[in-house]
Design a protein around this nucleic acid. Sequence first.
DNA 1: GTCATATTTGGCCATATAGCCAAATTGCCA
DNA 2: TGGCAATTTGGCTATATGGCCAAATATGAC
Lengths: 110, 110
Amino acid sequence: MKSSMKPQYEARAKIIKAMAHPSRLFIIEELNKNERCVGELTEMVGADTSTVSKHLSVLKNAGLVTDEKRANSIYYALRCPCIMNFIGCVEDVLTAKAEDHKKIMKSCRK
Amino acid sequence: MKSSMKPQYEARAKIIKAMAHPSRLFIIEELNKNERCVGELTEMVGADTSTVSKHLSVLKNAGLVTDEKRANSIYYALRCPCIMNFIGCVEDVLTAKAEDHKKIMKSCRK
DNA sequence: GTCATATTTGGCCATATAGCCAAATTGCCA
DNA sequence: TGGCAATTTGGCTATATGGCCAAATATGAC
């Protein structure tokens, strides 16, 4: 690929990589419904606070979420809800994969 | 998160993870324009054939691409072009991030 | 100031990934 | 059948990641 394009692909990959973790996907979905503070998310995810904090820092670093200090907590919010549209497509891929699998199974029984 | 949901998040994360690499993003874009064989992609990406082959196997494993043997080459194609819509959103995130950065810079100069 | 609560950071280990080279495999065609 | 071309696989190293625990760092209340 053109070397001038490389930084752009790297920037995109960094953002996508930030989404590429089960707990972080869960967090993204929750934040799409409601802003949340670290404590709430920690309880919902069911992992160590430090682990969740690090996940949030990954998301923030990628620019996917924003954080705001309020009262004695830090509230995180999803920055670009369009991210959620993508999940639908991911589900499509999963469905397509499942269909293929079914086809293969069927041809094996012949 | 509900433990019953965990496999679903893991499945989604696996697909997103497969996209989370600069070369693979490049390959996805190319395959969106045209199906391509390994040799062509190798030249376009500019890496070792074995490296590109492994990238393709990651994409295939995730269900993002299909492969078809033809003549003496294997042609890969993008399975769900909707994936491409997502890139637009990723760009939005990058823009939002850049805007923030500008704001911060501005407030520093005050 | 001191305490308690909320969050982040550092340290550590186990695991996964990307990349190259070399070797194995697969399929076409003379 | 033998060889060539395309692709995949194995082996290796360096690097990054996720997770927990423990420690550090805010921030608000008294």
